[in-house]
Amino acid sequence: MRDPGRVTDKTSQQPVDSARTAARQAAAGPAAAAEGPYEVTPGVYKRLTTGLGGYSIAMLSCLLIVGLIALITPREHKETLPTADYGNHLFALRNKAPYTPYAPQGLPFTWRTTSSRVSGLDGEGPVAWHLGMVTPSEEYAALEQSDERPVGEYLWRMTNSREPVGVQQVAGQTWQRYYRKDKDQRSLVRTLPGLTLVVTGTASYEELAVLAAALKPQPKNGASASPSAPAASTSPSATPADRP
């Protein structure tokens, strides 16, 4: 049984809905007429559609050129060691060492001192001096000197070798040659009363002979001698020697 209180007349609602729709269309008439495709000139269309793309292509081209230039430009990666001043160490050795120290004099300016260390001046242990250098061929050479005893143990530590492989005449003096193949290390050794001199490094025997020939005894007790400035050239009287 149907409830007479809930009778719905669909026919009476249709005119109302139609009237509302017509009113909305009338209100939106001008705006609706403005909708639709716009006509633009070819120049405006080109700027609107290709401006950003052209800019992006230009930027990428510039970045590509910069990258290629950076890639083909040679760069120097070699590190240059700072130069060391050993004057204070030599002065201390001349005044406090129990032996007469030796120092290079007259080396060409292409020899650069890169390190200097002194030990034993406080009375504990042997007195030793290390002087590291870079040779004109960019190899390493060092002067090692000490009054350490026994001499054999000191030579083993400095040359990394137990037995000499020959002799070499340098500036009228006989030096013993040592060689350590796996370290590519060459050494020249001269033993004096109370002092052992070792010239060692990766430099050739010829360059080591230049350093050995430049070694001169330094007066003690505050005398005026001091290491001279690098000279333009040096010609040690050394037996020519090639690498082993």
Rank of each mutant, 00 (worst) to 15 (best):
H130G: 00
E79R: 12
N160V: 11
A142Y: 02
T8H: 12
Y45N: 10
L93G: 01
G166A: 10
A27W: 05
S187Y: 03
P230Q: 11
R47D: 14
M133S: 08
G152M: 09
M158F: 06
A32I: 08
K78D: 13
L48C: 03
Q169L: 11
A19V: 07
I69V: 15
G51T: 15
D147H: 02
G87L: 13
K10I: 12
W111T: 01
I72D: 03
R112S: 08
K46N: 13
A34K: 15
E124T: 11
L68I: 15
P240Q: 08
R2I: 13
A171D: 15
P236F: 04
Y99E: 06
A209N: 12
T80C: 02
G36N: 06
P4V: 09
P98F: 06
A23T: 10
G106N: 07
E207T: 05
R6D: 07
G120I: 02
V165W: 07
K10V: 13
A23K: 08
T8I: 14
T83A: 15
P42I: 09
A26I: 08
V44C: 00
Y99F: 15
T159S: 05
A141W: 04
W175E: 04
D3F: 08
A23I: 06
L81R: 13
A128N: 08
P4E: 04
Y86I: 00
W111H: 02
R24C: 02
G201M: 03
V199K: 08
Q13A: 08
T234Y: 00
